[in-house]
Each structure stands twice: as structure tokens, then as C-alpha cells.
Design a protein around this nucleic acid. Structure first.
Length: 887
RNA sequence: GGGCGGUUAGCUCAGUUGGGAGAGCAUCGGCCUUACAAGCCGAGGGUCGCAGGUUCGAGCCCUGCACCGCCCA
């Protein structure tokens, strides 16, 4: 039989596929809701079924997975619920585009057939994104997968709708809403994006009805004048206040408009006169309500001028109407001026076409009462991290307006409301009604469907089986943490808070972690049209999921943007390879059964040092994860593995591993195995695949019957007894001496292979003992022949030299050394210390510092100064010795 | 107009109670030293955006300003 070995380089491809399949098949991440263990639960932000995995998802999934895997290690009963979102408008658009290619429209199919067609599409393409989640290594419970539009979620939606209606929190009515002509539906306020676009400000003359003069109004949308029902001026504006109550004539139409006074009018803007079109402008709508103005819609659902306008303009599309009207105004002498003006235009967040404010019958949720509770729950019951997002959350809730939840599309939860054709009664019911109270069976269901976010708002409890009384709900609600990007703080997070509080009487999650958005290396939003998308799946193909995950984790601390470039991922792929090779080396040097040695009895500087550092890195990783400092997890592990474990420890233990001293060998094998196996567990939440693969081939001590599945292992126990500050301090000296020699070698351009001698005039007996005890290591790491140590050692004048913590280092270089270079080198070191010393000396000469600073700080500064003085004196001495032989 | 965030090495960014400015990448020089050239060893590089203030002491706290970005109106 042969010991397991690893390939020379890490090849993620087969490894990832293998473990992904294993985990899902073995239901490794399916928790038992009846089992003990404090629950830890997360619901996934459900990606759109239309979507493909992008970097934002990749980051989002990575962070959640770190939390879930970490808390499993902590012994929690962890549930991570996966699922997708039916994305009403987006999905309907996709299928409509498909139909268009076949030369058909949704109306050709009819509602039922169309919805059937969308389901079919979802079946074929919609699960694509779920497979991409698998590729990321997300430790979700696939047995509890949910969809915002499946039967269980539909049940929840109906229940909520009916209850809110019965409580008077849902109402139906005619209001102005954001209308997308292209998607042919209403949108909620926050589904409208605002873009600044260059445009014009048209100044138009409105004659006064009594012929006494005229008013000039300024507008960015002259075509809406057809629907004007008033003119507004500021009552504090001396130019116009006397006109309030008088009438003006609407050009081209001839209608009389009342001139109203309202302080809303900005005296500075335009001409100070505002035309009021309540049917086609949000602000005008508000003015209209306040002043009881007529609401006259002049555009229909599709954006064409309707019968409320003069016949001449009827049937003209709104964009074309502008040109026609401006031309007529000009011809009739009403157009005074056309100025350039940049203004904010609302566009549909789904299709980017311009939004038309539009009056129509819609369903609304009354937000104020819900928002109050949601606001009060933060930060007492739910904490938002980073904390500064709390204010944004408050601002939004404070300015909240009622939520338009009806959509004029077909793909979505149909509103459970019926109208009796005979008596006009409105019936809202969980079960489809068959009869009206009047006895009529002539019931017609509302045509509209609900905003997708309505069902998303229920996600934290609907996914756990609500409204049924499930054990999942009892065990896992409220969830522990919600991880999401700030772009849906309003759309989603705030609404979940409202619904959770309303229906569960408890917040949906204890913590909200808001992460950055991923952008390209220039800070631009990744988009297909710009062509700057870095596809996570491409990156996984090229570098492996672990490298991608580690990259995203190490960047997770950044503010609002993560600027990602492929180069970075490649860099962390190198780290994966480093881990792999460290494991490969270990496997080559570990026996089939790890020796039973007590770690407390392990001797040797390297062993004591690395065990001490291991304790620290365990502590750091734990604290960083608990505090959501993801970058710190990555950074501390990176540094430990690469700069300490690989660069120093593995090099230092080679002699022991190769040597004849069986006791030292066994101890070292035990320590090597301990550090490697524990660091694998620490890395596992971030890089699950590579750690799993290595763990599965790593030998064990006798009696270690832990699972081969690293995902199920507990977080390593702390061993406070192994913290050894003394070993760390001694290691610092050791590394200083080795680095000092290496530095001399390189800077004096001595060939690396040449064996040199070393003499050290030691500063103390403990330092001498340390160096003496590790002579062979110093020799091998610094490539030395003879080493002489002692308090009275004197090196030859023709040496490369330096001082390390008071120890004078001499590398004799008779015939080799270039004195000029060595002199320059010494000068450089002296200058460096002088510079630092300057700052410290200045501090210590300041009476204010001596009097006010804590005694320990003063003491520390004094020690520093003394050390630097000592080193400087020695360096200057070395310099003089050298100068003396240079003549 | 209101709010939020950013400004630290050539690039991307860390820097958690204020106490000797860091990392990765890039650059330069030298190495195939039997885990790893996806690597090893070494080096250079910063008046921490500007101006004030608090303090014995400020990258960090306060005020103002500039520029960049995002959100809301």
C-alpha cells in the first residue's frame, strides 16, 4: 500500500465537482429541526429566475456561506434556505421577447396559455441559477428550496393580502402612479430610477382671461399642457400674488385655468409660474388634491393623446406630441423662449424606458403604521452592519409613501379580490369565492397581479412554512442574519421588517449585514452592454471557486464598491496552490498514523512558536467572523499560512523531519499535523473545497475517528496553555539574525550558493543560548558554514555587519567584500534608526508628554530610545572599524 | 437642495477604544536551495486630499473647504 499523495499543483476542477455532489447527496447541510443546538438560520436573497449568477451573487453567497459554515463549526443548528424569485416583470419580458420572435404577442395566447408558457420557461431555464449556486459551494439545504411563486408561498401571499385588507392596510383607489408604457404596468416609487438628462425649458405665454396681460410659465414637458387645469404662483411673490384667483387661457386649447397660490412654487425656478397638470405629474397631483383641481388625463395607457385633448392631437404618441405642440405654440406666438436645461427623468428599473406619471385604479399598502414598527425595531431588535446604514434605513421609512402593489401583467400572484358583476360588491378572500352575498355567482377576479416584492417581503417566514404551524418556523424564526447589498435595502429589507413584525410579531432577522456592490476594475458597474462583466463562472472555470471566494472575502470590507479584476483572483489562486503544496509537503513527511504526543511537551523554538501563533490566529478568525470583519478573516489566515507557516515553520522543521532524533521527529510531526489540520478547519468556511480535499487524505492520530467530512468538524478547541509570548519574542530574534545575514548577502552581491561564516557578539546569555540552541537552523536558513557565538566574540574588520536587538553580527568577507558598499549599507541602517529615534527623542524631551501620557507609554518610549541608542552606538563602531582598514 | 460614503505607496485597498504608517499586486536586483518558478531571497517607494481646532501626542476625534461616487427629492 502507498501513502496518499497529492498532485504537484492544485487542480480545482474535479475536486469541486466531487465534493459538491457529495454534500448534496449526503444531505450534509440538511439540519434536523428537532435536534438540539441553538438555531442559526439564514434565508438566501432569492435571485431572479431570469438571472445568471453575477459577481454580486458570488459575493453575497460567499459571505453567507462563511457565516453558515462557521456557525456549524460552533455547534449551532444551521439552516440556510435556498430559493429563487419569480421576478414578475423581468420574467414576463423574457417570455414576451421569445413570443415576439415567433411573431406572437401575449394577447395572441391569452392569459392562461401565456402563464403556462412562462412556467414552462421557468422549468427549462429558471433553475439554471440554482446550479450556479451549487458551483459556488454554498452550503444550503436543498431539501428546503423555495420559490416566491410556488404553492406554499402563494398560500402565504393570500393570507397576508387578505389580513392586511381586513385590517384596512390595503386599499384600492384612483391615484397617480408611475406607469411604464413599455412594460404596460404600474411601478412602485422605488422601482423608478432617476437619471439626469439634458433637455429644454420651454417658456410659454398664457394670456390672462380679462385681457389685462399674460403669464409666462416654464416647463420641461410642454406636451402635458393639454392636461393643464391650473396655474400656480407663490403667494409671497410680489410679481404675481395679485393675480391669484384670476383666470388665464390655455393656449391651443382655450380652456380657462384658475391661478392658484401655493408656497410650493419655487420663486427662483424658471419664470416663477408653474403650469399644473395633476394627471401627469406627481407634484402637480399633490397640488391638485390640495386645491381640489380637476384631474384631466390626456394620455392613454399606451402613451397616446386621448379624447380629452383637441381632436388635432388625438392619437399622437406623447413623444411626438411634444414637437407638434411646440411648433403650434411657436406658430401662434405663444412660445417665448427655449432654454437648455438638465432635468431628472424617471426611467423603469427593468427596461429603462421613460416613466409616465399616470392616474389609474390601483391597489396600495398603507405604509405608515407598518413603517413605524419597522423603524422602532432598529437597533433594539435588529442591528444593521455596518451601522451607518441605519440612518439610510430611517430616512427611507420616515419619508415613506403608500406602496402601489398592483401590476398590470400576468406572471405573478393574482390579487385575491373579486367583484360581483350584479351588485358591485368587492370580495377579498383567501379561498376563491363562488357566490356573492347577494346570491350572484357572477364574480370576476381582479385582473392585476401583485408586485413581486410583495411575496419577497414574506420570504423569511414563508420559506419556513408560514402560514402553517411548522417546526421550522418554531425553530428557525427569527433568522439570525440577512446578508444583502445596499441596493435592495428599501425594496426588500425594510419591507421584510414590516411584514415580519406584522405577521410574526417579531423581527425577521437579528442582524442585517450590508455588503458592497461589485464593480469592474475602473469602478464602473458591470453590465452586459458595457462589456465589462467578469463572469463568476468563468472565474471558477479558470481559477476555482475557492480562489474566487477567497478574493471576494478579502475585499469584503470595502465601503460601497469592490473593484474587482481578474488579476486579483489569479493572485489568490496562487494562495490556493500554496496551501496545496504545504499539505503536499506535510503528507510526504507525516507517518500513516500521527504519533501520540502531548502538545504541551513539544520542544523546539519552531514548534512552540507556531503553536502559539496558531492560538492567536484561531482567536482572530473567530472574533473576525463574529464581528462580520470578513477581510480580516482572509488576511489573518493568508499571513499565517504563507508568511509564517510556509516561509518559516516548514523550513525550520525540515532538519527534524529528515533527522534521526526520533523524539524530536515525533513531536514535530504532531505539531505539523496539528497546525495543518486546524488551519484547514479555519480556512474551510472561506475555501471549502480545497480544505475538504486535503482533509480527506490527511492521516490521523490513533483513535481520531472524526468524520472525513471537514464541513461537519467543530471549530478547534482553544489551548490557552500553548500561548507563548516568550517563544514569539525569541523567534523574532531568530528571524532577525537570519534576515540580517540574508540582507548582507544580497546587498553586497554575494552569490547565493556561497557558504559564509557568521560571528555573533551576543547581547545576553539568553540570546546566546537561543542562537546556540538553533545553530543548525541558522546555518541552513542563512546558508552558513561556521558559526561562532559568545559575549566576547570579535569579528574581523573586513566583514559585512549589522546589529540585531543588540547582538552584533559579523559575516567575514575578506577578499569578497566591497568596502564602499558595506559602508553605504551601514550608513543606510544608521540613517533609518536615526530617523525613528528623532521622533522618540522629541517626545521624551517634551515635559507635557512625560507628565500626561500614561506611565507605561512613557516607559515604552524610554526603552525604545535606549535600544536604538545601543544599536546606533554599535553600528557606528562597526563603521569606524571598517573605515580604519580602508585607510 | 437633503443624506451617505470616499480621498493613505505606481495600482487596489487595510488600519476596531488617539501612543513607533501596513498588505496584496506592480517595479527593481538575485536565485531551478529535492512542497510550491502558481515558487524562494532581498530592495526601493507615502508632508495619510487641503486648512484650522482639541490633545503631551491625530491617518484616527471636532469644524470648514475641495474633488470623486452613490442614494433621496
Amino acid at each position: 500500500m502507498s501513502k496518499p499523495t497529492l498532485a504537484k499543483g492544485y487542480e480545482p476542477w474535479d475536486v469541486e465537482d466531487k465534493w459538491e455532489t457529495h454534500w448534496e447527496k449526503e444531505k450534509t447541510f440538511t439540519p434536523d429541526a428537532d435536534a438540539d443546538g441553538d438555531p442559526y438560520s439564514i434565508v438566501i436573497p432569492p435571485p431572479n429566475v431570469t438571472g445568471v449568477l453575477h459577481m454580486g451573487h458570488a459575493l453575497n453567497l460567499t459571505l453567507q456561506d462563511i457565516l453558515c459554515r462557521f456557525h456549524r463549526q460552533q455547534g449551532r443548528n444551521v439552516l440556510w434556505v435556498p430559493g429563487t424569485d419569480h421576478a414578475g416583470i423581468a420574467t414576463q419580458n423574457v417570455v414576451e421577447r421569445q413570443l415576439k420572435e415567433e411573431g406572437k404577442t401575449r394577447d395572441d395566447l391569452g392569459r392562461e396559455a401565456f402563464v403556462e408558457r412562462v412556467w414552462q420557461w421557468k422549468q427549462e431555464k429558471g433553475d439554471h441559477i440554482l446550479n450556479q449556486i451549487r458551483r459556488m459551494g454554498a452550503s444550503v439545504d436543498w431539501t428546503r428550496e423555495a420559490f416566491t411563486f410556488d404553492d406554499q408561498r402563494a398560500k402565504a401571499v393570500r393570507e397576508v393580502f387578505v389580513k392586511l385588507f381586513e385590517d384596512g392596510l390595503i386599499y384600492k383607489g384612483d391615484y397617480i402612479i408611475n406607469w411604464c408604457n413599455r412594460c404596460h404596468t404600474a411601478l412602485a416609487d422605488d422601482e423608478v430610477e432617476h437619471e439626469n438628462k439634458p433637455g429644454n425649458l420651454w417658456h410659454i405665454k398664457y394670456p390672462l382671461a380679462d385681457g389685462s396681460g399674460e403669464l409666462i410659465v416654464a416647463t420641461t414637458r410642454p406636451e402635458t399642457m393639454l392636461g393643464d387645469t391650473a396655474i400656480a404662483v407663490n403667494p409671497e411673490d410680489d410679481r404675481f400674488s395679485h393675480l391669484i384667483g384670476k383666470k388665464a387661457i390655455l393656449p391651443l386649447v382655450g380652456r380657462e385655468l384658475t391661478i392658484i397660490g401655493d408656497t410650493y412654487v419655487d420663486v427662483e425656478f424658471g419664470t416663477g409660474c408653474l403650469k399644473v397638470t395633476p394627471a401627469h405629474d406627481m407634484n402637480d397631483w399633490e397640488l391638485g388634491r390640495k386645491h381640489d383641481l380637476e384631474v384631466l388625463a390626456v394620455f392613454d395607457d399606451a402613451g397616446y393623446v386621448n379624447e380629452n385633448a383637441p381632436e388635432k392631437y388625438q392619437g399622437v404618441y406623447k413623444d411626438d406630441a411634444r414637437g407638434v405642440i411646440v411648433k403650434d405654440l411657436e406658430a401662434e406666438g405663444f412660445l417665448v423662449e427655449v432654454a437648455d436645461h438638465e432635468h431628472s427623468v424617471g426611467v423603469c428599473y427593468r427596461c429603462k424606458s421613460v416613466i409616465e406619471p399616470h392616474v389609474s385604479t390601483q391597489w396600495f399598502v398603507s405604509m405608515k403604521p407598518l413603517a413605524e414598527k419597522a423603524r422602532a425595531a432598529v437597533p433594539d431588535k435588529t442591528q444593521i452592519h455596518p451601522e451607518h446604514w441605519t440612518k439610510t434605513y430611517y430616512n427611507w421609512l420616515d419619508e415613506i409613501r403608500d406602496w402601489c402593489i398592483s401590476r398590470q401583467i400576468w406572471w405573478g400572484h393574482r390579487i385575491p379580490a373579486w367583484t360581483c358583476e350584479d351588485c358591485g360588491e368587492l370580495i377579498v378572500s383567501i379561498d376563491d369565492p363562488t357566490k356573492c352575498t347577494c346570491g350572484s355567482a357572477n364574480l370576476v377576479q381582479d385582473e392585476d397581479v401583485l408586485d413581486t416584492w410583495f411575496s419577497s417581503a414574506l420570504w423569511p417566514f414563508s420559506t419556513l412554512g408560514w402560514p402553517d404551524d411548522t417546526k421550522e418556523l418554531a425553530k428557525y424564526y427569527p433568522t439570525s442574519c440577512l446578508v444583502t447589498g445596499f441596493d435592495i435595502l428599501f425594496f426588500w429589507v425594510a419591507r421584510m421588517m414590516m411584514m415580519g413584525l406584522q405577521f410574526m410579531d417579531e423581527v425577521p432577522f437579528h442582524d442585517v449585514y450590508i455588503h458592497a456592490l461589485v464593480r469592474d476594475e475602473k469602478g464602473k458597474k458591470m453590465s452586459k452592454s458595457t462589456g465589462n462583466v467578469i463572469d463568476p463562472l468563468d472565474m471558477i472555470e479558470k481559477y476555482g471557486a475557492d480562489a474566487l471566494r477567497f478574493t471576494l472575502t478579502s475585499f469584503a470590507a470595502m465601503g460601497r464598491d469592490i473593484k474587482l479584476s481578474e488579476q486579483r483572483i489569479e493572485g489568490y489562486k496562487h494562495f490556493m496552490n500554496k496551501i496545496w503544496n504545504a499539505a503536499r509537503f506535510s503528507l510526504m513527511n507525516l507517518p500513516e498514523t500521527i504519533p501520540a504526543v502531548d502538545l504541551n511537551d513539544c520542544e523546539g523554538l519552531a514548534n512552540k512558536w507556531i503553536l502559539s501563533r496558531l492560538e492567536e490566529v484561531k482567536q482572530t478568525a473567530k472574533e473576525a467572523t463574529e464581528a462580520y470583519r470578513f477581510n480580516e478573516i482572509a488576511q489573518s489566515l493568508y499571513k499565517f499560512v504563507w508568511s509564517e507557516f510556509c516561509d518559516w515553520y516548514l523550513e525550520m522543521v525540515k532538519p527534524a523531519l529528515y533527522g534521526e532524533d526520533e523524539a524530536a521527529k515525533a513531536q514535530t510531526q504532531k505539531v505539523l499535523w496539528t497546525v495543518l489540520s486546524e488551519v484547514l478547519v479555519l480556512l474551510h468556511p472561506v475555501t471549502p473545497f480545497i480544505t475538504q480535499e486535503i482533509w480527506s487524505v490527511l492521516p490521523r492520530p490513533e483513535g481520531d475517528d472524526r468524520s472525513e467530512d471537514i464541513a461537519t468538524l467543530p471549530f478547534p478547541d482553544m489551548r490557552p496553555g500553548l500561548c507563548d509570548k516568550e517563544a514569539e519574542a525569541r523567534m523574532e530574534l531568530f528571524m532577525g539574525v537570519v534576515s540580517g545575514v540574508r540582507n548582507i548577502r544580497t546587498e553586497l552581491v554575494i552569490e547565493p550558493a556561497k557558504k559564509l561564516d557568521l560571528l555573533v557578539k551576543t547581547a545576553s546569555e539568553t540570546d546566546r543560548e537561543l542562537l546556540e540552541g538553533n545553530l543548525n537552523l541558522i546555518q541552513s536558513l542563512a546558508r552558513l558554514e561556521n558559526v561562532t557565538l559568545g559575549p566576547d566574540v570579535e569579528g574581523p574588520k573586513a566583514s559585512g555587519s549589522t546589529v540585531v536587538q543588540g547582538n552584533e553580527i559579523y559575516v567575514p568577507l575578506e577578499g569578497v567584500v566591497d568596502f564602499e558598499s558595506e559602508l553605504a549599507r551601514l550608513d543606510k541602517n544608521i540613517a533609518k534608526i536615526e530617523k525613528t529615534k528623532g521622533g522618540v527623542a522629541k517626545k521624551l524631551s517634551n515635559p507635557g508628554f512625560l507628565n500626561n501620557a500614561p506611565a507605561e507609554v512613557v516607559e515604552k518610549e524610554k526603552e525604545k530610545l535606549a535600544e536604538m541608542d545601543e544599536d546606533l552606538a554599535k553600528l557606528n563602531e562597526l563603521k569606524e572599524r571598517l573605515s580604519s582598514i580602508m585607510g
